[in-house]
């Protein structure tokens, strides 16, 4: 599904961040990516989503066989990519409700499908809000404005469930969540996992992985994946820290 080959990525001001990264994710797999602060995890998420602040200097990313390099972020989204941001941006004046409606129907349009009726959208909203225990009044608020840290993360997962992506990248979605919220979010992810969606879960802690069993765990350091393996790696890191590698 997603293939990343020898990826080198720099910022606009030519600071090199990813330095030869390889990763392959197949249908239905869950990959966890761990690694110290500043190692390049969010940069990897951003470049896959198409953030114009970063550029590929060499290497390649393909999604379902198609190169992502020249695709706009919106095109990647309608192909089924989703990024849950580490720091979701606040957008005053646009309600979460209308934002998600617009996004859904733009996606339908991009896929040449007919737009959802207001009733269909409302049903989806109700269903997903219930899974995530989100109040419907909450959805009327401006996107992320004044949301608590945990509310922001929950709103990201809500958007994910609404858009039903094939591949979701969750960038530290677990940080800021209380124990109950963590379980709720994991439930949301697992509900999507059932229909063959894939996930990249970026995290510093084992605790989310207790609820969402990863198939693979990778350790990213200084712009490269330096270790890959099964879920036991995460447990070792939790106990011994990165020096262990």
């Amino acid at each position: 599904m997603l293939k990343i080959k020898n990826l080198h990525v720099s910022t606009e001001s030519n600071i090199s961040i990813l330095k030869g990264l390889n990763l392959e994710i197949n249908k239905g797999e869950v990959h966890a990516i761990m690694g110290p602060n500043g190692s390049g995890k969010s940069t990897l998420a951003s470049i896959v989503a198409g953030d114009p602040k970063y550029m590929i200097t060499s290497g390649e990313i393909t999604f379902n066989g198609k190169s992502l390099t020249d695709l706009e972020p919106e095109e990647r989204s309608s192909m089924g990519l989703f990024l849950s941001f580490q720091y979701p941006v606040e957008i005053p004046g646009i309600s979460l409700n209308n934002f998600i409606k617009t996004a859904l129907n733009q996606k339908q349009k991009a896929l040449n499908e007919k737009p959802f009726s207001a009733k269909e959208i409302l049903e989806k909203i109700k269903k997903n809000a219930e899974i995530l225990k989100i109040d419907l009044d909450f959805i009327k608020r401006s996107v992320n404005v004044g949301f608590s840290g945990g509310e922001k993360k929950r709103a990201e997962i809500f958007q994910m469930l609404m858009l039903q992506p094939q591949l979701s990248i969750l960038d530290e979605t677990d940080s800021g969540l209380d124990i109950d919220a963590l379980k709720i979010v994991a439930k949301g992810v697992n509900s999507l996992r059932n229909n063959n969606s894939s996930f990249i879960i970026i995290t510093h802690y084992q605790r989310l992985l207790d609820h969402i069993q990863p198939d693979f765990v990778h350790v990213l350091n200084e712009g490269k994946i330096i270790k890959s393996g099964g879920s036991d790696i995460a447990k070792m890191l939790e106990e011994k820290g990165y020096d262990w590698i």
């Binding site: 989503a49 198409g50 953030d51 114009p52 602040k53 706009e72 972020p73 919106e74 990647r76 989204s77 309608s78 989703f82 990024l83 941001f85 979701p88 941006v89 957008i91 005053p92 004046g93 646009i94 934002f99 998600i100 617009t102 996004a103 733009q106 996606k107 991009a110 401006s142 996107v143 958007q159 858009l163």
Partner: peptide
């Protein structure tokens, strides 16, 4: 970028932000 990452075309995203 946030709006576009959810599938909203650049032109529409700009319109949304102007509207907001």
């Amino acid at each position: 970028f946030y709006l576009r990452s959810r599938g909203i075309k650049k032109k529409e995203a700009v319109q949304l932000l102007i509207g907001a």
